Computed example of a mutant assay.
Amino acid sequence: MSAPAPPPVGPGPGAVIEEITALGPFFALEAHGPAEPASSAAGGPGWQPVSAPLLADRVTAVRRWLADAGGQPAEAVELRVAASVAHLGLAARLVSPALAAAVLFGRPLLFTLSQVRWQPVLGGPAPLSLPTGALGEPRPGAESLAGLLATGLVSGALEELASCFERFGVSRHILRGNTASAVNGAAVTLGRTRPQHASRTSVFAASLLASPPLDGESATDAAGVFRRRSCCLIYRAAPGAQGALCGDCALR
Rank of each mutant, 00 (worst) to 15 (best):
L94Y: 00
A86Q: 02
P131M: 15
A182Q: 01
T21K: 07
V170S: 07
L79S: 08
V50M: 12
L99N: 09
I234Y: 10
R172Q: 01
A67M: 02
L128E: 11
D57H: 12
R176K: 01
F111I: 12
E166T: 15
L153V: 05
A22K: 11
T60N: 14
S2A: 11
G247D: 03
A222H: 00
S40R: 05
A102G: 07
P7R: 15
F204M: 07
P108W: 09
G185M: 03
L245A: 14
Y235M: 02
A238N: 06
A41M: 10
S114Y: 01
G185T: 07
G136V: 03
T132M: 08
V77T: 05
D215H: 11
S202P: 03
L233A: 03
A142Q: 05
C246Y: 11
A162I: 06
R139V: 15
C164N: 00
E18P: 06
C246N: 09
G43F: 07
G123I: 00
G124K: 08
A69Y: 14
R192C: 12
A101F: 03
V77C: 00
T132W: 08
T201R: 06
G14R: 12
L251S: 04
A186F: 14
R176C: 02
F165G: 06
G24S: 04
P49S: 09
A15Y: 12
P45Q: 04
A126Y: 05
V121W: 15
T201Y: 02
T201A: 07
L128R: 10
V16K: 07
I234E: 13
G24K: 01
I234T: 13
T60S: 15
P138V: 02
H87K: 06
P97Q: 06
V121S: 15
I174Q: 01
V81D: 11
A150L: 02
A187E: 13
R192N: 14
V16C: 10
E75C: 12
V16M: 08
V16W: 09
G24N: 00
P25Y: 13
L110Y: 01
A101Q: 02
S171Q: 06
G177N: 14
L113S: 00
R167P: 01
G169H: 06
V62M: 12
T201D: 06
A223K: 05
R167E: 10
A86R: 04
L148A: 13
A38E: 02
G156I: 10
T189H: 12
A198W: 11
S96K: 08
P7Q: 14
V225R: 15
S84P: 10
E159G: 06
A134E: 03
A35F: 14
G133D: 13
L29M: 14
R172E: 01
V85D: 01
P239N: 07
L54D: 02
L122Y: 14
H197M: 15
P138R: 00
R63M: 07
S218A: 14
G71D: 11
T60I: 12
P213S: 05
L23S: 05
P127S: 03
P53A: 03
P120W: 11
P140G: 07
Q196P: 07
A5W: 04
G136S: 05
L130S: 06
A206P: 11
I174M: 05
G152W: 12
